[in-house]
Nucleic acid binder design. Structure first.
Lengths: 223, 223
DNA sequence: CTAAAATATTTAGGAGTCCTAATTAAAGGG
DNA sequence: CCCTTTAATTAGGACTCCTAAATATTTTAG
C-alpha cells in the first residue's frame, strides 16, 4: 500500500466529510460495534473450520458433524433430524453430508428398534480418531483468550450467555441447552455464595464458571 | 444399515459415565464455553444473513457485498481484490458474486484511470436502496443487546476488540482496521480522563466507546 | 526501453452447501 | 384399517468457493 497523502479532497465522503478532526462518526454507537465485532469473530470461526476440515480432507460441514457426534454421547441427539435442528439446516442437507461421512467410513448409522424410522449415528474408530484431531479446530481462538484474566473471561462468557439466552427467548436461536434457559436452573439460589446459582437436577450449587453452554440434561422452560 | 438396539453398554462413554449427577464435566473450563458461545453466535449471524438475503432475492454473499459497499465510501476499499481480502475469499469468488450483482443492476464497476487493471465498484441507485434495507440484517442481535446497560456493553465490546486485536496480531484475522491495532492509536495517552486514549491522526482523545472496529483512516503497525 | 515479473480481474471447472419438493417407511389415532 | 404425521433419503437447482489458467496492465530489471 502506498497513498497516504492526498486525503484532501474526495477521500472523505459525506459520511465523514467535515468530521475528520472531530470525534469519530461512530461515536457512542457501541451496539453497532458490538455487532460488527461479533460478526468479525464469526468470520474467524468460519475460516478456522474451513482450514481444519480441509487439512483432514473433509468439508467444513462434515467436520462439524463429526466433532458434534464426537462429544454427544446421548443417542437421542445423534440423529439426522436432531443435528439438522441443532445447526439450523434441513434434514436433507444433513442426510447428504452424513452419507458422505458414511461412505468415507467415519460414521455408521443403525436403525433404532423402538422406532425403525430413525437412524442413530455413531462414529467408527477411524471417525473417532479423526474427530479427536478436529475437535481442536477453534483452538486458535481459545489460545488468544489466554490474554484475559479469569475474571474477565467469566464476565465475557456471561455476556455471551446472556446474549444467547436472550436470542433464544426471542426465537432467533432455535436450539440451545444452556443452564440459564433450563427448567432446573435456579438463578441466585445461594446469594452471597461463591456458587450463587443452583441446578435442581444435579442438586448442586453452580458458580458462574460452572454454567453450561450445552448441557445434555437440559430441559426447556422457566424454572 | 439396519440392526440396532443394544444401547446397553456403550451409551455412556468414558466422558460421562458415572458423572451424571456430579458437577458438570465442563466445570471451570471457561475458555471452552467462551468458544462455544462465540461459535453459537456465529451461527446466528449466518442464519440472519441468509434469511435477510433471501427475503430480498439475494444470496447471502451478495447481500454481504452489497452492504459492505454501502458503507464504504472510500474507493480504495471498493475493489474486487479488497473485498476478497476483507472477507477471506479468493478474488475469483468475489468476482463471480459481483458480476451477478452487476447483472441484477445493483452494482456498477468502472475501470480506474490511474490503474486500468482495477475496477472500482459502486452501487446503483437501486443497489443503494436495497443495501439500505439489507444493512439492518443483524438488527435482531442488536436489539437483544438492549438488555445490557451501557457499562456492560462497553465492557463486552472491549473484550471483543481485545480478542480480535489479539487474533489479528496472531495472523488469524487477516484484515482489521481497529483503533487498537492502528499506528495512530495511543493507548492511555490521557490517564485518568474519561477519554483516556488518543488518535494521533484525528488528534482527538478517545473514550472506550469511541474505539472503532472499522476505521477508514486505519494504518497498520504499532504506534 | 524492453523483457520478465508482478498485480488485478475474469473465466472455467469441480466439490460442496443447502434448499424445496417428492418419495419411502414406519408410527399412531380414530 | 385408512389417514395423517414423522424420519430419513433422493433428486434437482441455485450458490459458494476453490484452483488453475487466461487477460490486461503495471512495475521492475537489465
Amino acid at each position: 500500500m502506498e497513498p497516504a497523502v492526498r486525503q484532501g479532497g474526495r477521500l472523505l465522503s459525506e459520511e465523514r466529510a467535515g468530521t475528520v478532526f472531530e470525534r469519530p462518526a461512530q461515536h457512542g454507537d457501541v451496539d453497532a460495534k458490538l455487532v460488527a465485532g461479533l460478526e468479525r469473530i464469526s468470520r474467524v470461526f468460519k475460516v478456522l473450520l474451513q482450514d481444519a476440515a480441509r487439512e483432514h480432507g473433509l468439508s467444513p460441514i462434515q467436520a462439524r458433524f463429526l466433532v458434534h457426534l464426537f462429544h454427544r454421547p446421548v443417542d437421542e441427539l445423534r440423529r439426522v433430524g436432531r443435528i439438522a435442528r441443532e445447526f439450523d439446516l434441513t434434514p436433507a442437507t444433513v442426510s447428504e453430508a452424513i452419507s458422505t461421512l458414511q461412505a468415507k467410513g467415519l460414521v455408521a448409522g443403525e436403525r433404532s428398534l423402538q422406532d425403525r424410522r430413525v437412524v442413530t449415528l455413531r462414529l467408527t474408530p477411524e471417525g473417532e480418531r479423526l474427530a479427536a484431531e478436529l475437535s481442536g479446530w477453534a483452538e486458535p481462538v481459545r489460545e488468544h483468550l489466554g490474554a484475559f484474566d479469569s475474571g474477565e473471561r467469566e464476565a465475557f462468557m456471561s455476556y455471551l450467555m446472556r446474549l444467547i439466552a436472550s436470542l433464544q427467548r426471542g426465537g432467533i436461536v432455535t436450539v440451545a441447552r444452556m443452564c440459564v434457559t433450563c427448567r432446573h436452573f435456579r438463578q441466585g439460589a445461594h446469594p452471597g455464595s461463591a456458587s450463587p446459582h443452583h441446578c435442581a437436577l444435579l442438586d448442586a450449587p453452580l458458580a458462574g464458571a460452572d454454567l453450561r453452554i450445552d448441557c445434555s440434561e437440559h430441559e426447556s422452560g422457566a424454572a
